[in-house]
């Protein structure tokens, strides 16, 4: 037993040595080694790292809240706060979404945990799509990014609210309360733990989940950085900025850029003049609800079929609602 352990530990020590080596001498390697092959690779690396660095604090936050829920929230407590009438249950869900100031990386593990604890599927999904948009931080950043046109910030919140409720309704009518997580239902049965055990358990859950989720985050960030580096924006305006094509193009962009919902308003504002307000709103509402990075995260926890239907539902609802908004209010 002891022998076997040390042989496997070897790799850990080699890695440890490697990290220290690069920590001290990493800068000495000339970056021209890479630029000679392709200068774009360094751009890609920088964008990739910046997405990872920016997302890590929020993933950690999400993982911790999820671990706290896992350890401390009982199924019965949760059930008490959610009305049994399914449509009525959407209202507390939106409220929770609005209060939780978490962005889209953090919300996936939290919602998964809540559903695992017995929260109805459609209620969880409403939280998943509303929390990253309907929160004060996102409102403020949209407000600052679109200072010359404050209607954008308000319209973003309003559309997000309507869209999340509709999505919740559709998910309920299509999936009812069926089990859509990958894990089997009812696996989590906690024996009596002492308080101290619970605390260390929270940390254990959190770090396990950080590694479960981290790999998907890194894959997502990698894909997003490749697309950002090699896709010229002029291409988009060539593809289309009309009444129908504009929102579609911007939603596609939001999906592939996988920006944090706190920052996407600034990117959207740089498209002002190229695209209509409704296209920008489609970008701002769709991106936080689902994007490439999030799809990969969701696919880690939810069944593939469900993730696919979820994306289709969100796409159709956001597209339709922004077009209607454009027709009646802009």
């Amino acid at each position: 037993m002891y022998q076997e352990n040390t042989s496997n530990y070897k790799w850990g020590y080699i890695l440890l040595f490697l990290f220290f080596l690069i920590f001290i001498y990493g800068d000495l390697l000339p970056s021209t080694l890479i630029t000679d092959i392709s200068p774009a690779i360094l751009d890609m690396n920088t964008i990739f790292l910046s997405i990872v660095l920016e997302a890590i604090p929020f993933v950690l936050l999400g993982v911790f809240v999820s671990a706290l829920i896992q350890t401390f929230v009982k199924e019965e407590t949760l059930a008490r706060f959610i009305p049994s009438q399914p449509i009525l249950a959407l209202l507390p869900a939106v409220t929770i979404g609005a209060i939780f100031p978490v962005c889209e990386c953090a919300i996936v593990p939290i919602v998964r945990r809540l559903i695992q604890k017995g929260m109805p599927l459609h209620v969880g999904i409403v939280i998943l799509v509303s929390a990253p948009i309907l929160n004060p931080i996102v409102f403020l950043s949209t407000f600052y990014a679109f200072q010359t046109d404050l209607t954008v910030a308000w319209a973003r919140m309003g559309i997000a609210l309507v869209v999340s409720l509709i999505i919740g309704g559709i998910v309920y009518s299509r999936f009812g309360n069926s089990w859509q997580l990958k894990e089997e239902k009812g696996l989590i049965t906690h024996g009596p733990h002492s308080y101290r055990n619970r605390l260390s358990e929270t940390f254990h859950h959190a770090s396990d989940e950080f590694f479960d989720m981290g790999k998907f985050l890194i894959i997502g960030a990698l894909l997003a950085s490749v697309i950002q580096t090699f896709m010229a924006r002029d291409l988009l305006s060539d593809v289309g900025s009309g009444f129908l094509a504009g929102p579609a193009v911007m939603m596609g962009l939001a999906y592939f850029l996988s920006l944090c919902s706190e920052a996407d308003a600034f990117v959207a504002s740089s498209f002002k003049g190229l695209f209509s307000t409704s296209s920008l709103l489609a970008f701002l509402v769709y991106g936080p609800m689902t994007d490439l990075k999030n799809t990969i995260l969701m696919a880690a926890y939810f069944r593939k079929r469900f993730v696919l239907s979820f994306i289709i539902i969100v796409t159709i609802v956001v597209y339709t609602v922004t077009l209607l908004f454009d027709l009646f209010y802009l």
């Binding site: 660095l53 920052a263 600034f266």
Partner: peptide
Amino acid sequence: ISCCVADGG
């Protein structure tokens, strides 16, 4: 930059 380099303009 507003949050990270990915959103730079």
